[in-house]
Structures are given as C-alpha cells and as structure tokens.
Measured scan of single mutants.
Amino acid sequence: MASQGTKRSYEQMETDGERQNATEIRASVGKMIDGIGRFYIQMCTELKLSDYEGRLIQNSLTIERMVLSAFDERRNKYLEEHPSAGKDPKKTGGPIYKRVDRKWMRELVLYDKEEIRRIWRQANNGDDATAGLTHMMIWHSNLNDTTYQRTRALVRTGMDPRMCSLMQGSTLPRRSGAAGAAVKGVGTMVMELIRMIKRGINDRNFWRGENGRKTRSAYERMCNILKGKFQTAAQRAMMDQVRESRNPGNAEIEDLIFLARSALILRGSVAHKSCLPACVYGPAVASGYDFEKEGYSLVGIDPFKLLQNSQVYSLIRPNENPAHKSQLVWMACNSAAFEDLRVLSFIRGTKVSPRGKLSTRGVQIASNENMDAMESSTLELRSRYWAIRTRSGGNTNQQRASAGQISVQPAFSVQRNLPFDKPTIMAAFTGNTEGRTSDMRAEIIRMMEGAKPEEMSFQGRGVFELSDERAANPIVPSFDMSNEGSYFFGDNAEEYDN
C-alpha cells in the first residue's frame, strides 16, 4: 500500500510504541512475548500442572481467558453494579484439565481477579502490559475465525453469508486497541457500523446529549479505520460520505453494504499476525530463551520457528480426527482463516481442507461434555516452508469459486491468482447506482469489472525454506488448481455463540 510509510507498523501498534527502528520493534515485541511466557509459567505453578498438562491447549485457553477477564475493567465495573446470582464479580476462573488415573478430569478453578492481575503485572515488570493482553485477544479471535462461520451475524446486519472472507476479527472485544483495529476485516468494521446506525434509528437519543457526542466521535473513528483499509480513492470518498452524514440511517447502511461487497474484489488491507497460545510461549521462556534479547516478529519467520520446536497437546472428542484438529489450530496460529487453501497447503506441506470436510468441533470443551471418553493427542503445528504475512489485500483475480465463501483475504505475501467468483459478486451490483453516491458507485463498479483474471497478485513473492531466515531465496510455489480455494466452501461450520 502506498501510504505504508505514514502508518505505524503493526509491531508498533502491538507494543504501543512511538516510531521505533526494526531492532527496537523486535525487542519490544519480544518483551511482550516474554511477559506472556513468564505469566503462563507462574500460572502453571499456581495450578500445580504437570509439564504435559501445561502444554494442553484447553488449559492455555482457560488461563488466557482468566487474565483477560481480570483486566476487563468495563465488564468488571458492570458486574459490580449489576450483581447477578451466583456470579462473584471479583473472581474469575474456568475449567482446568488434569490427568488422573490414566483419565482426563475437569476441575473448575476460581481465583481472585486481583490475584491474577498481581501475577500478570509481576510477570511483566510491574506494568499492565496491555500489548500482551491484546495479543491474547487476537489469538482467540484468530481461533474463532478458523472455527466458526459468522453466517447468522452477517444475515442479521443485512449482509450476504458468502462475504465471510471479510469477517476477520469479528469476535475481537471493543477494547483491543490499535492492534485489534489493524486485524479487523472490512466486513467486521461494516458490521460494527451498521449495528451502531441501527441503534440510532431505533433509539432517538442515541446521537443526542453528552453521551451522543461520545457516540458520534466513536462512529467517526470507526469510519476512519474502515476508510484506511480501502485502497481505492472511490471507496475512500464513499467512506467520507458515510462519516460526514448528519443523521446516519438506511442510506448509510446501503452504502456500507455496497462497500463491503466491493471489497470482495477491490480488497481492503487487513493486517495478519501470528499470535500463538500462551502454552507455546511459556515452555520456550522456561527453556531459557530470551525473546527480548533475541527479538521477535509476528509477521516473519519467528512464529514458524517457534511452532517448529513446540509440543502442544489437545483434548480430542471420541469421533474427532486429531489431524483435522491440528489443521484448525495451525490455521489459527498463522492467522489464515480466509487465505486461499492452495497457498496454505503449499506452505504447510500437507493438504489443507475446507472447514466442512474437517471432523472436528471447536477447541474448547463445553462444561456439560462427558470427560470419560476424552483422549488427548499432539497437535501437528509444523510447516514445510515459511512466508511473510501481508497486510495488503493483493490485486484481484477471477477463479472458480464456491457456493460458500466467494473470495479470499490473503494472509501471506505469496504470488498467486486470487480466487473470487466474479459473476456471483457482480450480480449483486445491478441497477442500484442512484442517489448521492452514484458517481462513486459507478466508478467502483467500473474498477471491479476491469479486474483481470490473468493478473498475478504479489508478483514474484515466494515462500522460503525454514533454514532461509533472511528470506534470501524465494520459492514461487505451484498450486494444484483442481483443489478448492475457499475454506468455508459450501460450508456447515458451527455458528459462533458468545
């Protein structure tokens, strides 16, 4: 993207840094990872977990959730003011799984939030270390993106479920800051804005008074975040219109849905970061690795190297396929839920299948599930090659597409044709070009129609051997075009429920 120079890199967003050079960025990201790792080690000690239990991804998720809940100030305040039966607002906890007599047992633990905050700050040299908290939120978000298709949420806001490739980060909490905003897809931002506008339509006082002023500035800020994701002048001009509207209503909703559809071809720039579970960072720190000293990046080879040398386990339900569970977590670790499966298959070195073909449910185990038949197995999170994460949407291309997802959002900077089903997408653009945004709409449609099938995206960008740390010898991959490109292809993934 041309304006790259004016933006802070995501590592800076990730670490609240002012302008830093590459070495400083690597050190501050490393410091953040160190903090998460030290916190995780301490929690495993508190909970008396064995090494194996500490490497269980379900335990990692519970521990991450506990610290996120302990620092969720708004919710904590709300819980104190609106006490609900049987919930102690000062405590947080969740299921911890232990191996007892050759069987997995679930144990519900409860801790004072104050105590968890103390352990977290102690692991982070006394700081609140917001960057580390956001990092864990993005890992949870990436896992949700890989596990669930947001059909219901899309339909509720009037969008087409086939636009799911635009929904990265749709389950990120509001408090995820600049680093969170960077990884949100165009569809996620559109959905947040539509929800806001709908509230304004239904509630006369939404934009009024002292609160209304705050609401208005939040609305304009979200519009600017979305505008910054678009790469064409016409899309940005249309966002200006939406932002400046005196009284946002149905016309703005129409414009936003139009823009979301246009992003299936004229893709937005959305950041991709490899955020790993805390149970990967903990053992690495415990083994003596100093992330701050060595430096770390979320968008280069580092996460690949770390996963190459990590042992992570997962509980497996009786009829689940461990290899499929591994694929789910591998995609989440690489922030690749909406990437082209052919690119992923090449990088991973084994075939990556669409969601609907995987015999696996989510990673988390519900409290009512029976533990008797639970097994555990090693997650295979290694890769054959590594590639640089991208934040450009890439230019655009036609490809055989599917009944489910009709476009992709690249996660890796790797040369390819970008699949999208042009006739299906263009069919949504018939007729409606009147109104105050008509010239911009016409211009956007013209650009979409001009998108050429034979153009290559990320020209000359390749993948790298894991021994090639400096990215000196790019390998331009070859793809098996007979395979499906979309992950949520004609899909039956479970729906995400809060």
Rank of each mutant, 00 (worst) to 15 (best):
Q231D: 01
R99Y: 13
M189I: 12
E294L: 01
V270S: 12
R65D: 06
R19L: 00
S407A: 05
G485Q: 04
E495D: 14
S141M: 06
K91E: 03
Y40A: 14
P303T: 09
R342Q: 12
Q311I: 03
G394N: 10
P423G: 14
G200K: 07
D439N: 12
K452A: 07
R150F: 03
I445H: 04
M163Q: 08
Y313N: 04
R317D: 11
K305A: 07
E380D: 12
Y148C: 05
M371T: 07
A2H: 00
Y385Q: 05
Y385M: 15
S217I: 14
I197L: 02
A278D: 09
C223T: 05
G187E: 05
P283H: 12
C44I: 15
K7H: 01
M238G: 09
L256W: 03
F346E: 11
R391E: 05
G288Y: 04
M456T: 06
Y385R: 11
T92E: 01
T15L: 15
E18N: 10
R162F: 12
G35I: 08
Q149A: 04
D468F: 06
T45L: 15
D127F: 12
Q42Y: 08
E115Y: 07
I33G: 14
F304Q: 05
A271T: 01
S402Q: 13
A284I: 00
G460Q: 06
E252N: 10
I444N: 00
R382D: 03
A471Y: 15
S165N: 15
R175P: 07
S438D: 04
V29S: 12
R75P: 03
F338P: 07
N124F: 13
A181Q: 15
N334T: 05
F489V: 00
K77S: 13
Y385L: 05
N492Q: 08
M238T: 04
G180R: 03
G282P: 01
Q415M: 10
S353L: 13
L264M: 08
E320N: 06
N319D: 00
E11A: 07
T350E: 00
S60C: 14
L56E: 10
R400G: 09
P477F: 00
G200Q: 08
E339L: 04
T430K: 08
R400Q: 04
D127P: 03
V186D: 01
R436T: 02
A451G: 15
D255N: 14
E107V: 10
L259N: 08
E244N: 13
F338I: 10
R55F: 09
N76R: 02
V363A: 15
T62C: 09
